[in-house]
Write a protein that binds this DNA or RNA. Sequence first.
DNA 1: GCAAAAGTGTTGCCCATACACCCATGC
DNA 2: GCATGGGTGTATGGGCAACACTTTTGC
Lengths: 258, 258
Amino acid sequence: MEDHEAYDPRDYPPAAVTVDLVVLTIRDPDEGPGRGLAALTVTRGEEPYQGVRALPGGFVRPDEDLAEAAARELHEETGLRPGTVHLEQLASYGAPGRDPRMRVFTVAYLALAPVTEDLRAGTDAADAGWLPVGGPEPLAFDHDRILADGVERARAKLEYTPLAAAFCPPEFTIAQLRRVYEIVWDVRLDPRNFHRKVTGTPGFVTAAGAPAVKERGRPAQLYRRGAASTLYPPLLRPSVPRPPRLRPAPAPGGSGNP
Amino acid sequence: MEDHEAYDPRDYPPAAVTVDLVVLTIRDPDEGPGRGLAALTVTRGEEPYQGVRALPGGFVRPDEDLAEAAARELHEETGLRPGTVHLEQLASYGAPGRDPRMRVFTVAYLALAPVTEDLRAGTDAADAGWLPVGGPEPLAFDHDRILADGVERARAKLEYTPLAAAFCPPEFTIAQLRRVYEIVWDVRLDPRNFHRKVTGTPGFVTAAGAPAVKERGRPAQLYRRGAASTLYPPLLRPSVPRPPRLRPAPAPGGSGNP
DNA sequence: GCAAAAGTGTTGCCCATACACCCATGC
DNA sequence: GCATGGGTGTATGGGCAACACTTTTGC
């Protein structure tokens, strides 16, 4: 946009700007096999990559801001209304040749959808479906890279934001929330300490009036998402290996006291 | 890029994609007034916003990836070579009308430059200069918003990465590093605890051979940047007010023991 | 000696962990 | 009763803030 380089259309052949969506959800949070993170994908109907799964997305319209385009695409693909789900800008990708047809820049957005959402309500893409994250099937274009960036963003944000609740229905138990963390981080968390930590962090969750839901064992208290936008103190991933804290070494060449 | 919407040039009038740079540095780290964060700006030579300062930037060339374009612009504006400075993608902006001439999408990059760098070496923009962050002067287009996003990114990243060293010359003292934190976060840090914390975090800094530099008082040990890409444990901003940890309240409707 | 800055030792608090233990339900 | 899952109490260890104290220089 800066002007010390003039814009000459001959130097800059037509470029398209699209919005691609990384929509993540958690499947079968209580079941053993098949449970895990899944991403929304559509099967491409034409070349290139015909028949290959890709992230949903589309062109940014002339009257739209980027976030508006992302929200519109999300609604078209899933029927989810913005406000219901978390939606944030992820990153942009624009390597030459990433689409063989023309120069295409894409702005990727990350959305987190509740576990129970049914895709089929209002979707305009009947070929849409959830694809387990980390599977062997490669996506079209550079979408594997975009998906990996989205997953890593989600993993990191669970640490210092209450975003894990975005994977849960409006009312949820602490154990459900814990399973979100365990699945996304691929770790085991102590149920007792997790409970205390979550209920003790201001604004993370608020107790719902309904006292309990019954399945097996003692009924659990239901909670709703709290008002906080960041968690203090954060929940740090135990997966990162913690190197032993270094003793501040005496500086080399320093005048030690032998 | 997805294909369930065909691309029709009549629906999508020419769009340009640019890269804008938020280059931050710290001015006068030891002096009182005038010290603080500063951003690289250029004065616009033509309409719109003629004579107004703006972030440096330019068009992405057909054979360039986004990161390459950002590195090229950075070199053109400052003479800094990639590898010398930290450069990362920040966010993208594309509201309709943000440039009155045409639809312009911009991918912003954040760069952190050492304190002592002299701009004039190799710059092609003689009208470039450092503008104190937070001053009253508004920037052209939506660049105030982009700059604010860049500053917030830098503030947040100092917590869990060794990026503060990017503001320092190759060899620096712990006190210099502490002043970076104090300026960027606008807080006071205890010199003793900061020293212990930095030297005790694996990979943050490594002692340089040269024992000391003399100014006033006892000469300080010199350090270089370490190999770590993330800090564990992180240095948390004391500026965020810490609400008292909640006692996990007995759930309402729960069967308390009165 | 005195001021100034670098760097160390020490203490107390808070938090995270680990785990023993109690509570409430279905069968 | 017994299994199952929800939730609390408590001991232990470690990081961090606070601050007294020592070291090394310029004046």
